[in-house]
Design a protein around this nucleic acid. Sequence first.
DNA 1: GTTGAGCGA
Length: 288
Amino acid sequence: MPSADTMSKGKSWAEQVDEGDEGVLPPNTEEYDEKKGVKKITEYKYNEEGKIVKTVKTYRIETIKVSKSIAQRKTWKKFGAAERDPPGPNPANTILSEEIFMQFVNSSEQKQADEEDDPLGKLKNQKIVSCRICKGDHWTTKCPYKDTLAPLQEKLTEDQRKPEVPPPSTAAAKSTGGKYVPPSMRDGAAKGRGESMSSQRKDEAATIRVTNLSEDTRESDLQELFRPFGPISRIYLAKDKVTGQSKGFAFINFHRREDAARAIAGVSGFGYDHLILNVEWAKPSGQQ
DNA sequence: GTTGAGCGA
């Protein structure tokens, strides 16, 4: 924070210059207050009009703990335009700005301290994800009620937005607002269905994982292989996104868990192509 | 041995 002022003792520097003192520049001084960690540099020079200007610059010398490898950089040789500069920062092109506080996300020490100081903050951190549908502790897209509750909520807000709409004449449209609504969620049918479900979606309980597939197995092959055990709702064959190359495993969703169980018993150890298939229950992906 | 892909708040 350099500041310039003129000498206040007696006559001003300008006056002294006028009186013919030109050429006598007081020596520059540099003092360091170790207690305050402040370095003060006083400089005298002529400005464009040939007048002497006193400049006082104060620097706060900060002691910052840095790792050895970073401290090492201080010993690097200066180069380019600064090649001949003396060691340390050059006040002509280096300033100290205001303090900047950094938060190190990966510091385990810091994290621990935070959690100890502020158990509330810890809780807050964990509750970053809140479902927009049921306020649960998961992403909205993972909500077990997203197929039942969400359409109902949509319908509600829609009704609020345009309450002036005259009621449609047909009986079917009367209760649904003109949109198709599956029977399972018409007028109170939603009750008693959502409650019995745990946090998992129904079909996810019937997912099996098939591994040790030969890389030329296709989804249709899996379809044929598992269809005898019962209706399949979804098949996913893991492939490389770029090359399309099969990764050698797949997920099969059955409608019924018991079908999936029979599929495991029936296909596990089954020789398919030149390999022996391995079939197990699939663990849910992600952090559900 | 090998557990998906995507979207955020």
